[in-house]
Design a protein around this nucleic acid. Structure first.
Lengths: 140, 140
DNA sequence: TATTGTTATACTCTATAACTATA
DNA sequence: TATAGTTATAGAGTATAACAATA
């Protein structure tokens, strides 16, 4: 019996996941570019569209250094998509929040991400349920 | 009946795929960094470990501009992991090929990618077969 | 003329370290 | 003294345009 790490089935699944990852990234970058945004800018804008938050927390969510967020938010702010607000509770903190236009852009970004439709459209409800449960266990 | 694009089940699957993508990337970058490579360098080295190829074809595979490959291969070459060879059939072409050390690094890189083991280890053979078939249909 | 690889340029993202203003 | 955000710096990836060698 081949080891679970190197058996053909596991390798095939790993390869397929790699393909899904590549396709997901491609589509995400394309969707961002269609709104004149980089991938990082789109991720930050999407994050803030769910909930305004301190600069530091954006860095934690994106798993990068806080100093990088300064520039990304600078560029979003200079385009009028995001603004910095003071935090009444702590004057050291700056809360980044999307503007009206930023929220609209975030919505359109989500819509143009047809990774939600295209690849899953061919699966029935039952199949998507199975896929959901398998992915949940993979990530568990 | 909610549209297929916005129903809760589809959104949940899309969310899960996003998590898989994030985790895959994190582990890939970590594995690359553990060999003092960037993600892009690791992808090129892995590609060449399967088959030497012209600079231009590397760019096609990575879906980026050929001018970028020059620098990435420069850095791999300066570390002795890759070399440039002339193509006997066309003197314009340079074939990039891994060195012995490059092949060893590519092998160790693959081994340290425990994305193959960790998340799939919890699934039975039958479940991995189902997952494989669903992913194939998603990508088809 | 067309193609291959390279160079030059400019922008973005990234980590590290030092700085400022608050706490 | 510790923390939040910024600045300064350097390295890497990216696209664009122009170039030399070859086809």
């Amino acid at each position: 019996m081949p080891s679970r790490r190197t058996d053909p089935l596991t390798l095939e699944v790993v390869e397929l996941i790699g393909s899904v990852v590549a396709r997901y990234h491609e589509e995400y970058e394309d969707a961002a570019a269609s709104h004149q945004l980089t991938g990082a800018q789109a991720r930050v804008l999407n994050l803030l569209s769910l909930e305004p938050m301190p600069m530091r927390r954006i860095a934690q969510q994106l798993k990068c250094e806080p100093s990088n967020i300064t520039g990304i938010v600078d560029r979003l702010e200079s385009r009028g998509l995001v603004e910095r607000r003071p935090d009444p509770a702590d004057r050291r903190v700056k809360l980044a929040a999307p503007t009206q236009e930023g929220l609209q852009t975030a919505d359109r970004l989500r819509e143009s991400l047809d990774f939600a439709r295209e690849p899953l459209a061919g699966l029935s409800t039952a199949e998507r349920t199975v896929l959901r449960d398998l992915l949940k266990r993979m990530l568990g």
